[in-house]
Design a protein around this nucleic acid. Sequence first.
DNA 1: ATTGAGGCTTGACAAGTGTCAAGCTCCTGG
DNA 2: CCAGGAGCTTGACACTTGTCAAGCCTCAAT
Lengths: 212, 212
Amino acid sequence: MARQATGAAQRVAVATEALRDEKFNARRVELAEAALETLGELGFARTSLREIAQNSAFTHGVFHYYFSDKLDLICCCVRHYKAKCVTRYDAVVTTAQSRDELTEGFLAKLAATLRDEARMHRLWYDLRSQAMFEPAFRKDVLEIDKSLEAMIWRIATRYAELGNKKPASSPAALYALFDGLFQSALLRHLANDEKAVPDLLDEVRRLLPTIC
Amino acid sequence: MARQATGAAQRVAVATEALRDEKFNARRVELAEAALETLGELGFARTSLREIAQNSAFTHGVFHYYFSDKLDLICCCVRHYKAKCVTRYDAVVTTAQSRDELTEGFLAKLAATLRDEARMHRLWYDLRSQAMFEPAFRKDVLEIDKSLEAMIWRIATRYAELGNKKPASSPAALYALFDGLFQSALLRHLANDEKAVPDLLDEVRRLLPTIC
DNA sequence: ATTGAGGCTTGACAAGTGTCAAGCTCCTGG
DNA sequence: CCAGGAGCTTGACACTTGTCAAGCCTCAAT
């Protein structure tokens, strides 16, 4: 009976602890989301914890309460960002019934995200560059890169499938190509180059049939 | 005669001023070169003028004397870096007499610079990302990107020429592809991935015949 | 109702930042 | 020889940064 009581008590303790952990993590994500606003605006180099706090509903102390330090916060931001990003084209890939449909659906999403989420994208490129200096970022960044590569690969294989073909190059090369094009288009777009988006779309439209 | 004297004096004045300008610029380049050391080591975000000065033979005041502010210094660094970078493969391109020779020469240089100048390359990617946030960088960065694209294009057209073909894609797409591959390889290399360099070489070796 | 702990705010600290003015040294033109 | 300025050093300034300790509030368990 003492055994049982102890067991029950333990279970309760475990349950409440799990609940706390959940709440704790939810708060972390909330804070990370707030931080992403400022990070996307200013970039890693110019963003301080105080600035993040001022642009949010929180005080700067909370961030220290929930994150061991600045890197911890940014890592959490990156991981959170990843989850959103990687599924962007999945609906298009699964619903498209023809090459044209896939192409147009993909291009539409591509143009939309380049225009509407430019700040998040530039933050990603910023953090990926930081990973070249800061070992603490590397694991997460490499992982995200892998999932982005897989995302592109899903599009390519589906595109090939719809033409009864196989992709002509490796996942790595394909991702490198799209990533390079996107990065360049993003920079031009941010520099107010009106032709950045249409040029990217043209280029991708021309490229798609040649790689599959 | 008064005229002549004035003219001569003016000429002398102009000449000495030109000389001063030259010396001034030489010093700027010297300082920029010193700054590149620290920037390559720490990245833009973590580098201060004082740190730059401490890792060099100069005091932090000199940098303020020769540059109006930090951005001015970094812009000068970037421009200086550009000049060195863009000609890397020119010798190979002009001397190679066969596709194989060009391929091997190119790959050798590629591997060497990835290994030996990794810090400069990561700085370039860092600054290119900064340009997405900092308008002051954009002009220089876009310009360098253009010359790098032209550099890749020279290699590709020469490669095509040696096979009596024409490049199959646009300069922009080709540059995006190589830049993406290089960037990814660089990150992996910096993360101590032994296979980063050989993987890049394999990929490029496989890719070259397919794009021309 | 009291206690205590989790969640959060506030304020302070030391270190580091860009900037710049005052002054030093050395070289050159007169 | 020496006045003056270019080149450079030094030290100080105002400010920002990450960090953290002390304390406040709230709410659930006793």
